[in-house]
Deep mutational scan, measured.
Amino acid sequence: TIEDAIKKLLKLAQKGQPYTFGDFTVTSEEEAKKLAKWLKKQL
C-alpha cells in the first residue's frame, strides 16, 4: 500500500539512503516527509 511505501521511505531516509519512488529521488528525511505529505494528498 501507499502507507507501507511511506513507512519504508521514511526508514530509508533516516539511514541516509537515497530512495527512488516513481519520478522522485529522496535523499533526506526532510524530502521524504514532503513526499509523504504529497502522497497522502493523492489518496
Rank of each mutant, 00 (worst) to 15 (best):
K37E: 13
E30Y: 15
L39N: 00
Q42E: 06
K37A: 13
K40M: 14
T27E: 03
E31S: 11
L39F: 01
Q14N: 09
L12M: 10
D4P: 04
Q14S: 10
K41P: 01
K41W: 12
K7D: 13
L9S: 00
K33S: 05
G16Q: 03
T1P: 09
Q17C: 15
I2G: 01
L12N: 05
F24N: 01
F21Q: 02
L39Q: 00
F24V: 04
Q42R: 07
F21Y: 07
K8F: 14
K34N: 04
L39G: 00
T25F: 10
W38N: 01
K8R: 07
Q42A: 11
A5G: 02
F24I: 10
G16T: 06
I6E: 00
K33E: 10
L43S: 04
W38C: 01
D4I: 07
A36L: 14
Q17R: 02
K41I: 08
L12K: 06
D4T: 08
K40W: 14
E31T: 05
T20R: 02
F24C: 15
L9I: 09
K8D: 06
A36I: 14
A13N: 04
L35K: 00
Q17L: 15
A32M: 08
E29R: 08
L43A: 06
P18Q: 06
A5S: 01
A36D: 03
K15M: 13
T1V: 06
Q17G: 07
L43Y: 07
A32D: 01
I6P: 00
L35P: 00
L43C: 12
K34P: 00
E31Y: 08
I2E: 01
L9R: 00
F24P: 15
I6R: 00
T27M: 08
Q42M: 14
T25C: 06
D4Q: 13
E29Q: 07
F21K: 00
A13D: 03
A36K: 03
A13Q: 05
T20S: 03
L39C: 00
K7M: 06
F21W: 14
L10K: 03
L43Q: 05
K34C: 15
F21C: 15
K8V: 10
E29I: 10
L12A: 14
I6N: 00
E30P: 02
G22D: 14
F21L: 06
L43I: 06
E30A: 09
I2P: 06
L12P: 02
D4C: 15
K40L: 14
D23Q: 11
T20K: 07
K11V: 11
P18G: 03
K40Y: 14
A13S: 05
E31D: 13
G16S: 04
K40R: 12
D4W: 10
L43K: 04
G16K: 02
Y19H: 03
K11H: 12
K37G: 09
K15P: 03
L12V: 04
E3Q: 13
E30I: 08
K11R: 08
T1R: 09
E29H: 09
K33F: 08
L10P: 00
T27Q: 06
K33L: 13
E3M: 13
F21N: 02
E3I: 14
K37N: 10
L9D: 00
L35A: 00
F24Q: 12
K33D: 05
L43V: 06
K34H: 09
G22S: 10
K37M: 12
V26D: 01
K11E: 14
A5K: 08
K34Y: 06
D23I: 15
A32R: 02
E3N: 06
K7E: 15
G22R: 03
L9H: 01
W38I: 03
K40A: 09
T27I: 08
P18F: 06
W38A: 02
T25H: 12
K33V: 10
Q14D: 06
K7S: 08
Q42D: 02
F21R: 01
K40E: 12
P18C: 15
K34F: 10
A36N: 02
G22L: 13
P18L: 12
I2D: 02
L43G: 03
L9G: 00
K33W: 13
K7G: 05
E31K: 03
L12Y: 12
K37C: 15
K40T: 13
F24G: 02
Q42C: 15
L12W: 15
G22I: 12
K34Q: 09
Q14V: 07
P18Y: 10
A5R: 08
Q17F: 15
E29S: 06
P18W: 14
V26H: 04
E3L: 13
F24E: 03
A36F: 14
L39V: 02
Q14I: 09
S28F: 11
L39S: 00
